[in-house]
Amino acid sequence: MTRYLRYLVPLLLFGLLAALLLRGLSLDPKLVPSPLIGKPMPAFSLSRLEDPSRTLSDSDLRGKVSILNVWATWCVSCRAEHEVLLQLARTGKVNLFGLDYKDERSSAQRWLSRLGNPYSANGFDEDGRVGINWGVYGTPETFIMDRKGIIRHKHIGPLTPEVVDKEILPLIASLEAESK
C-alpha cells in the first residue's frame, strides 16, 4: 500500500494543480465581482437626461423589480447592446432605467431619438460620481434590483440575447415571484 502511495500522492497533487490552472483558464480577470451584490442600492439623485428640470433618484427604482443599465454614447459596445435593450423593453416585463455615464447631454439625447429609447428614464451622471458609488468601472454594466431595492445581480459587459434569455429574464421572473 505504502509503495503505491509514493506514486499516488504526487499524481494527486499534480491533478489538483492542473484542475486549479484549468479553472483559471476559463475565468475572465476583467470580470471583477461587485461587493454591492446583496446590499441596498446606493442612493443617488440626478437630473434626467430627457428633461433636466426633473430628477431621477433611487426612490424611483424602489418598490418594483428594476434594471439599471449604465451606458454612454462614447462606449462602442453600448451601441451593440442597444438593440438588445430595445428588445428587452419590448417584452414589457421589465422596468428598465438608464444611467448615462460621463456623457454629453446633447449627444446622448440624439442617440436615444435616433436609435430608440428603451428606458423608462435616464439619470444623467455627467461627472461619473454616481457611477463611482455604484462601483462602475466600465460601460456597459447592468444592475438588477429586487422590490426592496437590494442589488441582486450585476452583469458586466454588453447584454446579448442569450444573456437576456438565460440570466436576466429568469432572474426577473423569480424576483417578481418573491413575496411582496
Binding site: 471583477v32 465581482p33 461587485s34 461587493p35 454591492l36 463611482i132 458609488n133 455604484w134 462601483g135 468601472y137
Partner: peptide, 8 residues
Amino acid sequence: LVQRYGDF
C-alpha cells in the same frame, strides 16, 4: 473604494 469595487 473596497465597499464599491471590492478587495480587488
